[in-house]
Amino acid sequence: MSSTRALMQVLRARLGAADPLPPPAPAPEIPPPPHYVFPSPQMMGRYAEKASAHTTALVGIGHVGTRYATDVVLQFQAELAVAHQAVATVLPEDWAASQGLIGLQSRVTSHRQFLLRPDLGRRLSDESVKALRDKAQKGVDVQPILADGLSAVACMGSGMDLLRHFTAACEARGWKVGTPMCARYARVWLEDEIGQEVGARVAAILLGERPGLGTGDGLSAYIVHEPRIGKTDSDRNMMSNIHARGTPPAQAAQKLAMLVGAMLDQRTSGVGLDLSSLAAELGDAAARAPRAPQQRVRLVEVKR
């Protein structure tokens, strides 16, 4: 009911007009919100649904009026929470030791500083340089480095798995692989200083990648030939989405080893590296055919 009408009723009584006002117009029935609009059973099997089966991107998610459906919003919020959680997680100081790795740390001293100062994450702390000189094997062909990067969750999750497979793949090719190590608060370019310090021909840093929606557990690998401080991104080759729903660690390790092989053969990396001959060798991993559909992991279920 109108609040102004209520006010006028008070005023009428005060002015001596006691007879009741004519009744207000009946309020229209407000229809209940639609139960769920799209995709309706009739729409199932249409193009959008088929397309959405091939990607984890937000397509074919339907709508209720001009808004998203509740389960889509909840799913989005849950996936965003996974990403936030991954960024906020800190790699425990003793984790490297517990896995039998040399523990290193960049010049960063706190998690907040790590997020705000990428430059400090690219250089080793003085103690780490010393530890590296004391414990690490020098003059190796390949130096694998596990690191937290932007997702300690991914590093602790499948990091060791990838490191083991990668090391095995390199050793199977007869290369001398460096002492396994793990760097805390590390950015990609940290591999330059580490590789230079141990005199590696190729350095490979395997680190948690910037989390996206629902993927807080993805690893990336960045490989550089002749690591030296001052190398740039154009000198590196990389592989991303190393996780169960993307490229599984075992398969990724084979592909990475082939990249290393190409670098050792051609004595270069980055944009100068010619990968045209690798397509046949890589087989499945380099296939040009459409890759298998990625299934969206549902974090939220809503009854329809």
Binding site: R5, R12, L15, A17, P22
Partner: peptide, 9 residues
């Protein structure tokens, strides 16, 4: 008719 009755638009 009395005062302050609504005039519906």
């Amino acid at each position: 008719m009395s005062i302050l009755e609504p005039i519906p638009p």
